[in-house]
């Protein structure tokens, strides 16, 4: 359906916060689900672009979806040029959501760069669950430099502790967020801790090595180029390890975008 842009604001170099109002028939996305967006009527770029949901509100009259995105190519560049009152096509919500555990002791979020967007929506979901009132939310957030730690203030309001890392040391630990996380990993017991991550493939691969051999629950949100977003084109597959139960290839749009980290074949 078409939505109306109420805000499409640059919040840091190359990073935008997009807020779109939609008809109330739009389903409430579960954390980890995504939407396909495109500038309607265009054939270049042709395909929609998948974005993990960053925020969502439902009132009597309308629903509002929020996307936090980084300009990385033609699709996001075109999106960034849309203005208030412009229409944007929004399909979804699509995909498998994160599994959540209100009875968990500690919930740990690990995000790299723009991977912060769907993780923030998940963190907010945990915070909104009455049954999860006692869960401790801890976040590890890495970016190239301080100004690219977009949305960190919101995360600080949701999580009790937020650790950061930057490549240049301009905020928090200097180095990779997985290095920062590995220093604390022993404090997250397998039984009571749940780990969720989203970020560059290299970060997720690194994390898979850190948690390998440990039975801690760890779900990750993967990204791939997509055409349809609904499971038909088979374009967005990732390789699973043998015995993953879903065959060798899994569609990020249907079997994912959320996967158990141990199921991915990193190659």
């Amino acid at each position: 359906m078409n939505g109306k842009i109420v805000k499409n604001q640059q919040i840091s170099a190359g990073h935008f916060l997009l807020r779109v109002t939609l008809a109330e028939s739009f389903k409430t996305p579960m954390p980890g689900q995504f939407v396909m967006m495109r500038d309607p009527g265009r054939i270049d770029p042709l395909l929609g672009r998948p974005f993990g949901v960053y925020g969502f509100e439902r009132s009597q009259e309308e629903v509002t979806v929020e996307i936090l995105y980084k300009v990385v190519g033609k699709g996001t560049l075109v999106l960034s040029r849309l203005r208030e009152s412009d229409f944007v096509e929004v399909l979804g919500p699509y995909g498998r959501a994160f599994d959540t555990y209100p009875e968990a002791g500690k919930v740990v979020f690990i995000c790299g760069g723009i991977g912060v967007a769907p993780i923030t929506y998940l963190a907010q979901h945990y915070r909104s669950l009455a049954a999860a009132r006692d869960v401790e939310l801890i976040c590890y957030y890495g970016a190239s430099k301080a100004e690219n730690l977009v949305g960190i203030e919101k995360l600080k309001r949701i999580c009790s502790r937020v650790f950061t890392s930057t490549d240049d040391g301009s905020h928090g630990f200097q180095g990779l967020i997985t290095e920062r996380f590995s220093a604390d990993i022993s404090s997250y017991a397998a039984g009571s801790s749940k780990i969720y991550a989203c970020g560059p493939r290299s970060m997720l691969k690194e994390l898979s090595e850190l948690v390998a051999g440990n039975s801690v629950f760890c779900q990750i949100l993967m990204e791939e180029r997509m055409a349809c977003g609904i499971g038909a084109c088979l374009g967005c597959t990732v390789l699973l390890k043998d015995g993953g139960g879903r065959g060798e290839h899994a569609r990020v749009c249907m079997e994912g975008p959320v996967f158990n980290i141990g199921d991915i074949h990193w190659g």
Binding site: L46, M226, C236
Partner: peptide
Amino acid sequence: GNKPPRIME
């Protein structure tokens, strides 16, 4: 089928 990436706009 083929290994990913499988599509490119």
